[in-house]
Design a protein around this nucleic acid. Structure first.
Lengths: 141, 141
DNA sequence: TAGAGGTTGATACGTTATCTCACTACGTTA
DNA sequence: TAACGTAGTGAGATAACGTATCAACCTCTA
């Protein structure tokens, strides 16, 4: 297996999905803006990278990546369209200001122990998590 | 202040918002189905309770409740509409099966300490949180 | 390198949320 | 009490977003 693809593409392949141009381009768009993007942002970025790629494929890729815990949609500013966040190593954590919609990311979560407990108690296999706190940022409080 | 309203309505009032019929009815709809509801579910339930209430007011109430950390929109089955979950005591935790979209709720999170740390380190005031794990449920794994 | 089946792109369509605006409810001030 | 100001509402038109369809294509494996 060639090493020219990143770890996320490898994850796609090992889950049995083909590494198509559309999927790799959506992945590239997400990674080059390493952060929060709405579906519209992703559509624009993908079109910039390769105008041949259709909308439907972008939405299909976003849904697939979500199922594989590569990204996770979350609602930040509006309820009309989700914002997709990358889940490096399967997790992501942030604080959302409910007044100005500013997003503040942080690293620590101390959830490893809880994850192990849940896998045992609920009999599930976990692949990722998202932890969001809500409140007011320094400027808004 | 009369005790005829629940703690969530009290929260609305103490934040300076009026306890109108539309808002109280949306709250009632959410509480009587104490769980995950899409906006369409809420619209239907509100119409059932009081057909006079307009769609716009329902969406406005959902947005307001989100800002007050009474509810939180999250993405579960489809990307077309969010699912709103109540945040009793400001928080909610669940596992989402990325294959069948089953939602398994759980209680423990052990995040009180982290919350205090974040308020100090990031200079924010936190009002709630949502913790989501992703993976495969017992049937799907 | 050839075959099988997953994947794609174009476009039309359906669904969901927002915007606008006149009207109403309600508390406040004179 | 009366007039005013502000917050909130409902109706409907409109806009934004995501999905369905299907023939053609591409990726991977043997």
């Amino acid at each position: 297996m060639p090493e020219e693809f990143g770890p996320r593409a490898q994850r796609l392949r090992s889950a049995g999905y083909k590494l198509t141009n559309a999927r790799l381009t959506v992945l590239q768009a997400l990674e080059q803006r390493d952060g929060h993007m709405t579906s519209t942002d992703v559509l624009d970025a993908v079109t910039q990278l390769d105008p041949e790629i259709g909308r439907a494929s972008v939405f299909r890729a976003l849904e697939l990546f979500t199922r594989l815990s590569i990204i996770r949609p979350t609602y930040i500013a509006s309820s009309v369209t989700p914002t997709y966040v990358l889940l490096p190593n399967g997790h992501h954590h942030h604080v959302i200001c409910t007044n100005c919609n500013r997003v503040i990311e942080f690293e620590e979560c101390h959830l490893e122990q809880l994850e192990v407990e849940l896998e045992r108690n609920l009999k599930v296999r976990l692949t990722g998590h998202l932890l969001e706190f809500y409140g007011l940022c320094e400027q808004c409080k």
